[in-house]
């Protein structure tokens, strides 16, 4: 619970650190990508903090190469 709250606060801090600058410079595209990535990774972090079983990319990588080595 506390960790999720902490993540949200951190995300908000990050947003307010970058947002005014990007807005001032009128970088619309940068602002969009920044916001999308921030929302995405905040969601991932919150899921991780709530002990949601996230898929591990290393599992896929390992599976992929094991498929080739035939084991």
């Amino acid at each position: 619970m506390w960790s999720m709250l902490a993540i949200l606060i951190i995300a908000a801090v990050i947003f307010f650190m970058e947002f005014p600058l990007l807005k001032k410079k009128k970088k619309k595209k940068d602002l969009w990508f920044f916001s999308i990535l921030l929302v995405f990774f905040t969601a991932v972090s919150v899921l991780e903090a709530s002990e949601f079983p996230l898929p591990n990319p290393l599992d896929y990588i390992q599976g992929f190469y094991q498929f080739f080595s035939g084991s």
């Binding site: 920044f34 990535l37 990774f41 905040t42 991780e48 996230l54 990319p57």
Partner: peptide, 22 residues
């Protein structure tokens, strides 16, 4: 994008999660 800096902090959150679940 014109500048990589806005990406540093959001990606940092991602890298921390990945380093834990890796």
């Amino acid at each position: 994008m014109d500048d990589h800096r806005p990406l540093l902090l959001p990606l940092g959150m991602g890298i921390i999660v990945l380093s834990i679940i890796a």
